[in-house]
Computed example of a mutant assay.
Amino acid sequence: MSSARRRLPGWARTAARRTADAVLGPVLGSVAGGRRTDHVAITFDDGPEPGTTPGLLALLARRGVHCTFFLLVRQAEEHPELVRAIGDGGHEIALHGIDHRPLTSLRHGDAVRMLHEARARLEAVAGRPVTRYRPPYGKQTPASWLAARRAGLEVVVWSADADDWVDRPATQVAAIAAENLRGGGVLLLHERVEPGPGANR
């Protein structure tokens, strides 16, 4: 611990951390997706979902496209056959959380423990390593980002959102995605939609 930090009283350290969280939180984990600007990364959140995942996997196979699926442990444990199908299709399996609650309100140590548990449980279902994590709603702070890194996870957010969680025609969703996405970017899509942060659960 630095001598400057030791001199700060506890309330001042807390205030400084909260200020840093508010200022830096929105930019940590923001990525350009890839090193090649002639490619984009397509990602799906909140699955797997029996009514959506099989058809989605069939479409991706026909098109020869591989994606990253940010799965919820709760869903994965309910539908392990879909998790295996995602992996067998050559897609990356990544973590979106045990459920869809953000970690930003947890103490750092609790967030680290929860992410370790979530990663281990998802790896047990998937039968393969899980190395990436997307925070629910993209909500994070430097403290929660550090917790993910301590759990051995790379934090990935997105550069383009298709707003597919809003009820609108598929053609309109596709147009929004195309308008917002640039080469090297990361597109956010959903297999299923969790309630918003203010919804009753």
Rank of each mutant, 00 (worst) to 15 (best):
V31E: 07
G97C: 02
P80F: 15
G89H: 15
M114T: 10
V73A: 06
T141R: 03
M1Q: 09
V157G: 02
E191V: 02
H91C: 11
P26L: 01
A177K: 05
R113Y: 04
V40W: 08
A20Q: 09
A94P: 08
G34A: 09
F44W: 08
V193A: 12
L57V: 09
R7H: 11
A76C: 06
A118K: 00
W158K: 03
W145Q: 01
R6C: 15
P54H: 07
R36L: 11
A20V: 07
G138D: 11
P54F: 05
A76T: 05
V31H: 15
A162D: 10
A12M: 00
V31Y: 12
A94Q: 02
L57T: 07
E78P: 15
E179S: 06
V157H: 00
E77N: 08
L82Y: 14
S3P: 13
L103M: 01
P135A: 00
E49S: 04
D163E: 13
Q140A: 14
P197W: 04
P169Y: 07
H96N: 01
E117L: 06
L122D: 07
V156F: 02
D46S: 08
E191M: 04
A111E: 02
A111M: 06
L103F: 01
I176P: 04
G51F: 13
A170W: 10
R36Q: 06
R62P: 14
N200A: 15
V65C: 14
V130T: 09
R121P: 02
A170S: 15
V125P: 01
A85S: 13
P50S: 11
P195H: 05
A147I: 04
R201D: 10
V83Y: 06
R18F: 12
P48F: 01
H39V: 07
V173L: 10
P135K: 01
E154K: 10
W11I: 02
L24K: 02
P135L: 07
S3F: 12
P26S: 04
E77H: 05
P142I: 00
G198V: 00
R113A: 11
R119C: 12
A76Y: 05
H91M: 03
V156M: 05
P102S: 11
L57K: 14
V112D: 03
A85L: 09
A178N: 15
R182Q: 10
A160E: 03
V186C: 09
A175K: 12
M1F: 12
A94T: 07
V73M: 14
A174C: 12
R134W: 00
V40F: 04
E77K: 02
G10P: 13
A120Q: 10
G90L: 12
R13L: 11
D163C: 08
G152C: 01
P50H: 08
R63W: 09
S30N: 11
P80T: 08
L57I: 12
L8P: 14
A4Y: 15
V65P: 08
G152K: 01
H96M: 02
R7Y: 08
D167T: 03
R17G: 08
R62T: 10
S105R: 14
H116W: 12
D46C: 04
L24G: 00
R62E: 14
Q140Y: 12
D161K: 15
P169V: 02
A199E: 09
